[in-house]
């Protein structure tokens, strides 16, 4: 499939601007800071209910949306509101009454729900959770929306710093990150899928996969591949 990426923003603790990312790419390091993404552009009454995950998503996507009229959103996160959910489970185990706010915002589509309300945008919005190629699945979803008439689609992929308790089982989130891409029709970018006979072995990742698009977005590379199970994805961009 072919498309254009008309704008993008990425965030990880301490990194937000294109200059930050150019610096990081020159010497990629693990990021361990617990910094939260800045959402001071939102009124306090809206900001107060945002989880770290929601803050990241709003931080990267909001400025892109300010440039465009209403548009559909595809939100992708493999782990979702893990922190909120773990806290709720702990409270249940202690037989405490659950917080209505945390309960109502613990579902996977809570963030796009808030997005729709805050932006007064009734466009189609989808929340997906896929395995380690969630980003590619989100692009398929966005492509379908473009094909059915949307002029642009905002794709957001984000994961928060995972709780200590789950870390032994989580290989794809070395640190918190968020990436927003604004997709439009075009043919500068292509994403293709081929299938291999042997499944690839899942390794613990040094960087979140979504950030491997950064060299392409910053015009330092023209292709990247990503293998998950028997699926081999190839990203390519013509400069």
């Amino acid at each position: 499939m072919k498309f254009n990426i008309s704008a993008w923003r990425a965030w990880a603790p301490g990194l937000s601007t294109q200059e930050d990312w150019l610096g990081w790419l020159a010497d990629p390091q693990q990021l361990s800071s617990q910094d939260a993404a800045d959402v001071s552009f939102l009124p306090a009454m809206q900001r107060r209910r945002l989880s770290p995950l929601a803050r990241m998503a709003f931080h990267v996507a909001w400025p892109l949306a300010e440039q465009s009229p209403k548009q559909p959103v595809v939100f992708c996160s493999r782990h979702g509101e893990t922190l909120r959910n773990l806290n709720l489970l702990k409270q249940m185990a202690e037989q405490e009454i659950l917080s209505p706010t945390h309960f109502s915002l613990s579902v996977h589509n809570a963030i796009i729900g808030l997005w729709s309300i805050f932006r007064q945008d009734e466009s189609e919005m989808t929340a997906i959770a896929a395995t380690q190629d969630g980003l590619e699945h989100a692009v398929i979803e966005a492509q379908l929306l473009l094909s059915s008439g949307a002029d642009s689609v905002l794709l957001i992929i984000a994961e928060e710093q995972q709780p200590e308790l789950y870390l032994p089982w989580i290989k794809d989130v070395p640190f918190a990150y968020a990436l927003a891409l604004q997709l439009t029709r075009g043919d500068a970018w292509s994403l293709s899928l081929s299938l291999s006979k042997e499944p690839s072995i899942l390794k613990k990742q040094a960087w979140p996969h979504a950030l491997s698009l950064l060299p392409l977005l910053l015009k330092q590379a023209t292709q990247v591949t990503h293998s998950v199970d028997t699926r081999c994805w190839q990203w390519q961009v013509t400069l």
Binding site: M45, R49, I97, S99, P100, T101, S104
Partner: peptide, 17 residues
């Protein structure tokens, strides 16, 4: 103060606790 219905539930719970 401008609180909403979710706040009402949350505050009810907090007061009880």
């Amino acid at each position: 103060l401008g609180l909403d219905s979710v706040d009402a539930l949350e505050l009810g719970l907090a007061v009880q606790k």
